[in-house]
C-alpha cells in the first residue's frame, strides 16, 4: 500500500503548497527521515507574509515577573507564546500548552522562529522585533539581548539571507540592530523603522548611535527610514541622500544642520520627503524671512536649476512637538503669497 513517502516530487510539492499552516509542515518533518529529506529537497516555501516578535516580562505572576516571547505570523493569524517558568519553558498556542522542563525559553523561541523561517524563500512584507519593558532593570541584559543572540545565530546560519521588505525594531543601542539587520537580504530591504514601543519620551540626552548601521548594505539599499528614537544627527548627515522618505527625531538642530539638509535635497536624485522632529532648536533657521500661512506655520520655497519641482520647507508645532518638514511640491501648489527664492 503506498504511503506519503511514495509520492512523486511534484505531488509532494502540491501537498505542501496546500498546507494552510507552515507549522504543519514542521510537524511533518518530524515524522520520519525520508519525509524530512523529501520536504527539505522540495523547495517548499511557507510564504510567511508577516512576522512579529514581542519580548516582554509577563504580568501574570505577583512574586516574579517571568519573561516571555510572543510570536505572531501572518498578521496575527498564528500566535505562539514561549513563557519562562520556574523550571523550564511553557509553549502555548491556541488551546494547547506544552511544558519543556529544564529548557531555556529564549533559546527555544529563537530556534523555533529560525526553524519556521528556515524554508522561507519569498519576501516577508513586515518583520518586527519589539519589546515592552525596555526600561525595566535587567530586561536588556537578561531577556532582550540573549533572545536577539539566539535569533541572530539562526538568521546567520540560513543558506540565504532572509528576504524582508520592511524591518521594524525598538533598539536601545545599535549593537542590538547589528545582531539582526546584517542578516537580512540587502536587496529586499525597502523600509527600516526604529520604533519606541514603550511610548517613552525617548532619551534626548542619549541619542542612538548609528555609525555602524550606516555602513551596512541594508542601510544603503533601503528607501524609507523612520525613527521614533532620537538619533545622532551628526552621524546621520551625508548618509540619507539615497532615501526617498525620512522621518527622524533629533535632540537639537542648528542652522548648519538645516542648511546641510537643504543642500542634500538640492543634489539628491531620490530624496522626496524628510520630516525632523527636534527637541531643541539652537539657532534661527538660515532660510531668510519665512512666509506665514493661515496656521502661522513658517514656510520657505526654493527653486533649483534643472528641477521641475519646488522645495518646500516648513517649520511648525504639532501636539507640542516641533518639526521641520522638507518636501518637493509642484509649482502650482505654491500659494500665491509664497515667494519662491
Amino acid at each position: 500500500m503506498p504511503s506519503l513517502i511514495d509520492m512523486p516530487e511534484v505531488v509532494m510539492k502540491n501537498i505542501l503548497e496546500n498546507l494552510k499552516d507552515f507549522r504543519d509542515v514542521q510537524t511533518l518533518r518530524k515524522t520520519c527521515h525520508d519525509l524530512r529529506n523529501l520536504i527539505d529537497d522540495s523547495n517548499y516555501d511557507p510564504k510567511i507574509r508577516q512576522c512579529a516578535i514581542w519580548v516582554d516580562r509577563s504580568l501574570s505572576s505577583e512574586e516574579q515577573r517571568f519573561g516571555e516571547v510572543v510570536m505572531y505570523y501572518d498578521y496575527w493569524n498564528i500566535g505562539v507564546v514561549y513563557k519562562e517558568t520556574k523550571d523550564g519553558c511553557l509553549i502555548a498556542q491556541n488551546e494547547k500548552q506544552k511544558i519543556l522542563k529544564n529548557e531555556n525559553y529564549l533559546k527555544i523561541a529563537g530556534n523555533d522562529i529560525g526553524l519556521n523561517l528556515s524554508m522561507q524563500k519569498s519576501e516577508i512584507e513586515l518583520f518586527e522585533i519589539l519589546n515592552g519593558s525596555r526600561t525595566d532593570p535587567g530586561f536588556r541584559e537578561i531577556l532582550w539581548i540573549p533572545f536577539l543572540e539566539h535569533l541572530s545565530r539562526n538568521l546567520k546560519n540560513r543558506p540565504r539571507p532572509l528576504r524582508v521588505e520592511e524591518f521594524k525594531t525598538c533598539p536601545l543601542n545599535q549593537d542590538e540592530i547589528l545582531l539582526i539587520l546584517p542578516f537580512l537580504d540587502a536587496k529586499s530591504i525597502q523600509k527600516i523603522h526604529f520604533y519606541d514601543s514603550f511610548y517613552t519620551d525617548g532619551r534626548p540626552e542619549n541619542p542612538l548611535k548609528i555609525d555602524e548601521i550606516l555602513k551596512l548594505e541594508q542601510w544603503k539599499m533601503a528607501s524609507i527610514f523612520t525613527s521614533d528614537l532620537f538619533i545622532d544627527l551628526e552621524q546621520f548627515h551625508e548618509n540619507y541622500e539615497h532615501f526617498e522618505f525620512v522621518h527622524v527625531r533629533v535632540t537639537e538642530i542648528m542652522a548648519e544642520d538645516l542648511e546641510k539638509i537643504r543642500e542634500t535635497f538640492f543634489h539628491s536624485p531620490k530624496l522626496e520627503f524628510m520630516k525632523i522632529r527636534y527637541h531643541k532648536l539652537k539657532d534661527q533657521p538660515p532660510f531668510g524671512e519665512a512666509i506665514l500661512d493661515e496656521r502661522d506655520w513658517e514656510n520657505w520655497f526654493f527653486r533649483v536649476p534643472n528641477k521641475e519641482k519646488i522645495l518646500k520647507i516648513q517649520h511648525f508645532e504639532d501636539y507640542s512637538c516641533e518639526f521641520y518638514d522638507f518636501r518637493w511640491i509642484d509649482e502650482e501648489k505654491v500659494p500665491e503669497y509664497g515667494g519662491i527664492q
Binding site: 506519503l4 501537498i15 505542501l16 503548497e17 496546500n18 498546507l19 494552510k20 499552516d21 504543519d24 510537524t27 511533518l28 518530524k30 515524522t31
Partner: peptide
C-alpha cells in the same frame, strides 16, 4: 491529504 495534517502531532 494536506487537510488531513491540520493540527496533528508527529
Amino acid at each position: 491529504v494536506a487537510n488531513m495534517a491540520q493540527g496533528k502531532t508527529p
